[in-house]
Simulated scan of single mutants.
Amino acid sequence: MSPLDTSAARSAAPLRSDLALIARMVDRGARVLDIGCSDGALLDHLIREREVVGRGIELSQRNVNACVARGLSVIQGDADTDLVEYPARAFDYAILSLTLQATRDPRRVLEQMVRIARHAIVSFPNFGHWQVRLHLTLRGRMPVTDSLPEAWYETPNIHFCTIRDFIALCEACGLEIEETLVLRNDRPQKGLLGSIWGGPLANLLGEKAIFRLRKD
C-alpha cells in the first residue's frame, strides 16, 4: 500500500464512540481548539465532517508529529501552562477529551477553556462508577477497569473525580452546563440528570461523562 493509500485508510477509520459524540456537539464551521488532541483523530474528523477551522495543542511530541503528518495544525504545548497565551474568545469550542484528570490544576484549565472559547466540551472517566467503588471496598486497592486501565503507579491520571465532583466544580466556577452525556458501555444514556439516570444513579452507573459548558 502506498503512503497515500495508508493516509486515506487512516482517515476512513471509525472514530472512537465517545469522540463521535463530542463531534456531534460541535456546530458546523466552528472555530475549534482540541486540547490534548493525541494523534488528531477527533480534530481530523471535525475538519473533514464538520468543516471546522481546527487547531490542536498536544504535550507529546510524537503525537504532534503524527498530527502534522496527517496535515493538521497542531503545536506542542501544555494545557496547564499554555492556554493563557490564547486571547479571549479566540474559538467557538475548546475540547478536552479524557485529559482533565491528567492535568495538574483542573480548575484553572477549565477556567481558561471558557475564557478562550464560547463553549467548552470536557469528557472524563467517572471514578464514582460502581465497579470502582466495589473494587475499593472488596479489595482495598486502586481499581483497574476498562475506563481506568492503568495501575496506580503507571497511570497519567493525578486528579480523579466523579460526575458529582465535576458538577460541583462547574458550580464553583460559575459555569452553565448546556448538555450532558453519561456513557455506559460507551453508549449514551437518555434523559440523564433529569430522570431515573440523573443524580446519584448517573454517578453510580456512568463509566464516562461528556459535558458541554459555557461561562454563565
Rank of each mutant, 00 (worst) to 15 (best):
M1N: 08
S2I: 01
P3C: 06
L4V: 07
L4F: 13
L4Y: 11
S7T: 03
A9P: 09
A9T: 04
R10A: 10
R10M: 09
S11C: 10
A12V: 01
P14G: 02
P14N: 02
R16D: 08
S17G: 02
S17F: 12
A20M: 07
A20C: 03
A23L: 05
M25G: 03
V26R: 00
V26P: 02
G29T: 00
R31L: 08
L33I: 11
L33G: 12
D34C: 13
I35L: 14
I35R: 06
G40L: 04
A41W: 02
L43Y: 01
L43W: 02
R48W: 03
E49I: 00
R50G: 05
E51T: 00
G56Q: 04
E58N: 09
E58Q: 09
S60A: 11
R62D: 14
R62V: 12
N63G: 09
N65E: 14
A66Y: 13
C67E: 10
V68C: 10
R70V: 01
S73L: 10
V74R: 12
Q76P: 05
Q76R: 12
G77R: 10
D78E: 09
A79M: 14
T81E: 14
D82I: 07
L83R: 13
V84F: 15
V84M: 13
E85T: 06
R89F: 14
R89Y: 12
A90W: 07
D92M: 05
D92G: 03
Y93D: 02
A94N: 02
I95F: 15
I95Y: 15
Q101F: 12
A102I: 09
P106L: 14
R108N: 14
V109G: 13
L110D: 07
E111V: 05
V114I: 04
A117K: 00
A120Y: 04
I121N: 02
V122E: 06
V122R: 06
S123L: 05
S123K: 07
S123R: 05
P125T: 07
H135R: 01
H135Y: 05
H135V: 00
H135K: 01
L136H: 06
T137A: 10
T137L: 09
R141N: 06
P143T: 08
P143G: 15
V144P: 15
D146M: 12
Y153D: 14
Y153F: 15
Y153S: 13
E154C: 13
E154F: 15
P156I: 08
P156R: 10
I158K: 13
H159D: 11
H159M: 11
F160G: 13
F160N: 10
I163T: 05
L169A: 10
L169E: 07
E171Q: 11
G174K: 04
L175A: 04
E176R: 11
I177T: 09
T180D: 03
L183K: 02
L183N: 03
D186S: 06
P188A: 05
Q189V: 02
G191K: 03
G194F: 14
G194S: 09
S195Y: 13
G198K: 10
G199Y: 15
L205S: 05
G206W: 08
K208A: 00
K208P: 01
K208W: 10
A209R: 03
I210R: 00
I210P: 06
R212T: 00
L213T: 00
D216S: 12
